Amino acid sequence: MKVRVVSIIMLGLVALCSSFTASAADVLNNIMQRKVVRIAVPQDYPPYGFVGSDMQLQGVDIETAKLIANKMGVKLELIPVTGPNRVPYLQTGKADMTISSLGKTPERAKVIDYSIAYAPFFDAVFGKSNVQASNGGELAGKTVSVTRGSMQDEELTALAPKAVVHRFEDNNSTIASYLSGQTQLVAIGTTVAAALKQKHPGLDLQQKIILSNSPCYVGLPKGSPDLVAKVNAILREAKADGTIDKISEKWLGAPAGNLPES
């Protein structure tokens, strides 16, 4: 009797896994049949994704999402997400892809697929000019704000295990904590720091430590090779005709350069 029960359970698990695989493989077909692509994007991370004065989402990630939807010949549905939930939205089928300044890590690669890179991104620790922090050791005991689950969170944790890290659920809260003096330092992207300086003239925000050069990739459901191939083809064409460089120049102030293919 126990053998039969175990067999039934195992068959059920196999069927469930098969259904997940089939569902992931069918993402591209579903998009084309629906004639709508649902893309998760940031709304609080300038210049990659933020709400403009016209109350519309804009930035590098939003323009890249528009490019992909246009080349696929489907309508675009933007789905605002935060750092912690952009991957779960893919895993649970709430989004067909995520374009949210997403870096590539071995841990994420276990649960999602990636496109080729579409934009550059540097991570760094910033703080006031009078705060001494030129290496991981000098971060010991110092307070640093960072967005939970972000690349900066992972990099900071590895570099400075003795830092006093204040983790926040979204980028606005991370930045606000530094601006209000709750923390001495903040771990963000260099382009985000540039946008902050532009928004707050005279802000004392000096680059202290480069954490990494982490280009941005489109995140895609695990086991969706057709969709990965489609997105990669669109991005390669956009790189070749200069569209990727134009988007980068508009929002980041420089061409995208030689972005990695893996």
Rank of each mutant, 00 (worst) to 15 (best):
V3Y: 14
R4P: 02
V5H: 05
S7P: 08
I8T: 03
L11G: 15
L11C: 14
G12Y: 02
A15H: 04
L16G: 07
S18G: 04
S18E: 07
A22Y: 15
S23G: 01
A24I: 03
A24M: 12
A25S: 04
I31D: 01
M32C: 07
Q33K: 15
R34N: 13
V36M: 12
R38G: 04
P42K: 07
Q43C: 02
Y48W: 12
G49M: 13
V51D: 02
V51Q: 00
M55V: 12
V60K: 08
D61R: 13
D61K: 12
E63N: 10
T64L: 00
K66A: 07
L67T: 02
N70S: 15
K71G: 00
G73C: 11
K75E: 11
K75G: 05
L78Y: 04
N85F: 12
V87I: 15
L90V: 11
L90T: 07
T92M: 05
K94F: 12
D96T: 03
T98K: 02
L102D: 00
G103F: 06
T105Y: 06
P106E: 09
E107I: 02
I112R: 07
S115R: 02
S115I: 09
A117H: 01
V125T: 06
G127Q: 03
S129Y: 14
Q132H: 14
A133F: 11
S134P: 07
N135P: 13
G136T: 10
L139Y: 01
A140R: 13
K142D: 00
V144N: 11
V146Y: 05
V146Q: 01
R148S: 14
R148E: 15
S150E: 06
M151N: 10
Q152T: 11
A158N: 07
R167Y: 01
D170T: 06
N172R: 14
S177N: 15
Q184H: 14
V186T: 11
V186K: 06
A187Q: 05
A187M: 01
I188N: 00
I188L: 14
T191I: 08
A193C: 10
A194F: 05
A194Q: 12
L196G: 03
Q198T: 09
K199Y: 13
G202D: 09
G202S: 09
L203R: 12
Q206N: 10
I209H: 03
I210Q: 12
S214F: 05
C216K: 02
G219S: 06
S224Y: 04
V231H: 11
L235F: 07
L235Y: 00
T243A: 11
K246Q: 12
K246P: 07
S248F: 01
W251C: 02
A254S: 14
A254F: 09
A254Y: 10
A254I: 11
A256T: 00
A256D: 08
G257M: 07
N258A: 10
N258C: 02
